[in-house]
Design a protein around this nucleic acid. Structure first.
Length: 571
DNA sequence: GCCGTTTTCGGCCCGACTGTTTTCAGTCG
């Protein structure tokens, strides 16, 4: 799958053209095409081979030619020429807050600045203030932006956003002038990383609400403050925006500020086609400006002839088309989960006993909980020897005699060794209630080798589940460059369940892969990979990822009752 | 650069805030 590679080049071209001063609509065309290809269900190489590029929405003659060249040669002459004309370093400058294409171009043309370093120096020397459109405040803001960029990588993981977001939202709700309120933006869509938090509130007295908002104890700096929109920076560097609207606009505003941007662009053009105008204040008749609806989010969708679209689906991955045809999936619900199969106990590198884990699982209403400790060769994580396994199995049998309403399952997260064999012999694997297999060592091997290693791992007759299939750690380790379609096909052939790992820095499979698995009718299982009972709440992030991948209840192994589960595991 | 049961040319989503100006361009979401 070269989709991401192609999309990245198109995004970069768009940025470069922006700096060059091309018209907005041209660069937008590049971005729309890039986004479409990034989330495309099929391999772009296949589309090229079959000459169907121009059937992709947003790809015309010119882009088709360029995409073909990228796929076939791994490069693009036009892109190389652009990079010669406009230094690549300028793309990094674009990421600084307050700097857009116009300002970056001005910095380059008049001061020859092409790097963040050079920009910082020029700010300190006060060289920017004499340029048209710049001033002393701009210099200071840019310097602050550079420092902030060094401090944080820009985006935070979902669990951090949850902590910061829910606490701040609780504080907002305490303001008496606030009527309705919600966390919107990528937080509400449950994206895997969050750039900033968006809080929406309705009120008749926005000034009071804004005053309350900026007085939150953890605010380190107020970035802007107006009657409808304010922004602050928290001490950990996360930006939080608050928007306040009137009650009759609350639903439209929630729709608007939940995004994604691409989803909204499509929504608004659909509105225009149907004779309306849609903005954050409501849906209006185009000619008369008459207010149609906007108080309730759902009504905005239905007025446009659409079924309600869950926030997790709003990525312009076909959800608007599906909603207009009544073909949206009925997404797996957070309440549908009946158990967690991926939990480590004190037997390996977990911090809680099996009994503590079982008791905790009951609080979630689970019917079963699977203890999957590491296997013998993974010494660093306390992998279990065959002797210890016997002890563990006996302990689980004892606990199951005591417990009511929940069953502890005896499992393992068995290492797939470098040569593709599993870390226990089949005679041992046969003893488990279920077997998770996964790669935990030698991550840097050649991608073809890695692919055949994993495929041979899941081919073992006792392997049930493939843990964290692509091995990525968000922000720290790239995913294996394996062909995900091959992997999904192999999972289908070997009757293997693919894990959606819920740990906030994994979320692996991701939403795009999960959607692909669903389309190929391969079932997934959502596991937390908990190393303490506190991690067990991460299930929510795994479910969110499954929902973002269009998955329904029947697509997920751990929504089935114990009897069906065992049957599906072949035990 | 794309697209068309309004159009093959002329549109393309739009409002708020800041910092720079002296009525507005640029940025952001």
């Amino acid at each position: 799958m070269k989709n991401k590679f192609v999309a990245d080049i198109l995004y970069q071209i768009a940025d470069l053209l922006d700096i060059k001063g091309e018209i907005f609509f041209k660069t937008r065309a590049y971005r729309i095409a890039a986004q479409t290809i990034e989330v495309l269900d099929e391999d772009i190489e296949t589309v090229v081979k079959e000459g169907r590029l121009e059937s992709i929405q947003g790809v015309g003659e010119a882009l088709a030619k360029k995409i073909k060249e990228i796929v076939e040669t791994g490069n693009l002459e036009y892109f190389e020429r652009l990079k010669k004309e406009i230094p690549e370093g300028l793309l990094e400058l674009l990421e600084l807050p307050g700097l857009g294409p116009k300002k970056v171009a001005a910095l380059y043309k008049s001061l020859g600045i092409t790097t963040v370093d050079a920009l910082g120096k020029a700010c300190i020397q006060g060289k920017l203030r004499d340029l048209d459109g710049f001033g002393e405040i701009t210099e200071r803001n840019i310097l602050r932006g550079i420092q902030l960029k060094e401090k944080t990588s820009g985006r935070v993981l979902l669990n951090v956003a949850y902590q910061d977001g829910n606490k701040y939202h609780d504080y907002i709700k305490k303001c008496r002038e606030v009527e309705d309120s919600a966390l919107a933006g990528s937080f509400r869509r449950k994206k895997e990383t969050i750039g900033d938090l968006d809080i929406l509130a309705s009120s008749e007295n926005p000034d009071e609400v804004m005053n309350h908002f900026v007085k939150y104890p953890d605010v380190s700096r107020i970035l802007m403050k107006g009657p409808t929109k304010s922004s602050v920076l928290l001490s950990d560097g996360l930006q939080v925006d608050l928007r306040v609207v009137k009650k009759e606009s609350y639903g439209a505003a929630l729709q608007y500020f939940t995004g994604s941007k691409e989803h909204n662009v499509k929504m608004r053009s659909l509105a225009i086609k149907k004779g309306y105008r849609l903005n954050e204040y409501g849906l209006f008749e185009k000619d008369t400006e008459k207010y149609v609806t906007g108080r309730v989010e759902k009504d905005v969708y239905s007025a446009l002839g659409l079924d309600y679209i869950e926030p997790e689906l709003r990525e312009n991955m076909g959800e608007i088309e599906a909603a207009s045809e009544g073909k949206l999936p009925r997404l797996v619900d957070y309440k549908d989960i009946l158990g967690d199969l991926h939990i480590h106990s004190i037997y390996s590198d977990g911090s809680d006993s099996i009994e503590t884990i079982a008791n905790h699982a009951q609080k979630f209403g689970y019917k079963y909980v699977g203890i999957a400790d590491h296997s013998q060769s993974l010494k660093i994580a306390g992998g279990l020897s065959e002797e210890t396994l016997i002890k563990k199995q006996k302990e689980i049998q004892q606990i199951n005699k005591k417990l009511e309403g929940i069953t502890v399952l005896f499992g393992t997260e068995c290492d797939i060794k470098k040569d593709g064999t599993l870390d226990y012999p089949n005679s041992v694997l046969a003893e488990f209630d279920f077997v998770i297999v996964g790669v935990h060592t030698a991550f840097k091997m050649d991608s073809k080798q890695m692919e055949s290693r994993i495929l041979s791992g899941i081919e073992n007759e006792y392997a049930n589940i493939l843990a964290h299939p692509t091995g990525r750690l968000i922000g720290r380790r790239e995913a294996f460059k394996i062909d995900i379609e091959n992997l999904i096909d192999a999972a289908k052939k070997t009757n293997t369940f693919l894990e959606i790992n819920s740990f906030p820095d994994r979320l692996d499979l991701n939403n795009v892969h999960a959607k692909l698995a669903k389309e190929k009718k391969v079932k997934c299982v959502i596991g937390t990979d908990s190393h303490s009972v506190a991690n067990m709440t991460y299930m929510e992030f795994g479910v969110a990822t499954a929902r973002r991948g269009w998955q329904e209840k029947s697509d997920i192994l751990n929504t089935y009752g114990l009897k069906d589960l065992k049957k599906m595991l072949g035990r």
